[in-house]
Amino acid sequence: MKVPKRLQPLVDEGLVDTVLRQLMSGKEATVYVVRCGDDVRCAKVYKEASQRSFRQAASYQEGRKVKNSRQARAMEKGTRYGRKMQEEVWQNAEVDALYRLAAAGVRVPRPYICFEGVLLMELVTDADGHAAPRLAEVDLSMEQALLFHAQLLREVVLMLCAGVVHGDLSGYNILVDADGPVIIDLPQAIDAAGNTEAAAMLERDVANLADCLGRFVPALLELQYGKEIWALYSAGLLTPETVLTGRVAAPARPADVGAVLREIDIARREEEERQRYLQQD
Rank of each mutant, 00 (worst) to 15 (best):
V118C: 03
L119F: 01
E122Q: 11
V124S: 05
T125H: 06
D126I: 10
A127I: 00
A127D: 10
A127T: 00
D128G: 03
G129Q: 02
G129C: 04
H130V: 13
A131N: 10
P133N: 00
R134Q: 14
L135G: 05
A136K: 14
A136R: 12
S141I: 07
S141N: 02
S141P: 05
Q144A: 08
A145Q: 10
L146Y: 00
L146D: 14
L147W: 13
F148L: 14
F148N: 12
A150D: 15
A150I: 01
L152D: 09
L152I: 15
L153V: 13
R154T: 12
V156H: 02
V156C: 01
M159F: 08
V164A: 00
V164R: 02
V165I: 13
H166G: 04
D168N: 03
D168L: 06
L169N: 03
Y172G: 12
N173W: 04
I174S: 04
L175C: 05
V176W: 07
V176D: 02
G180D: 01
V182K: 06
I183R: 07
I184E: 01
D185E: 08
D185T: 03
D185C: 02
L186F: 05
L186N: 04
L186Y: 08
A192Q: 06
A198Y: 03
A199M: 10
A200M: 14
M201K: 06
M201L: 15
M201Y: 07
L202H: 03
E203A: 08
E203M: 12
D205N: 09
V206P: 00
V206E: 09
N208R: 09
L209G: 08
A210T: 12
C212A: 03
G214I: 11
G214V: 08
R215V: 08
P218I: 06
A219N: 11
L220V: 03
L221M: 13
E222P: 00
E222L: 15
E222Y: 13
L223C: 08
L223H: 07
Q224D: 15
Q224H: 13
Y225G: 06
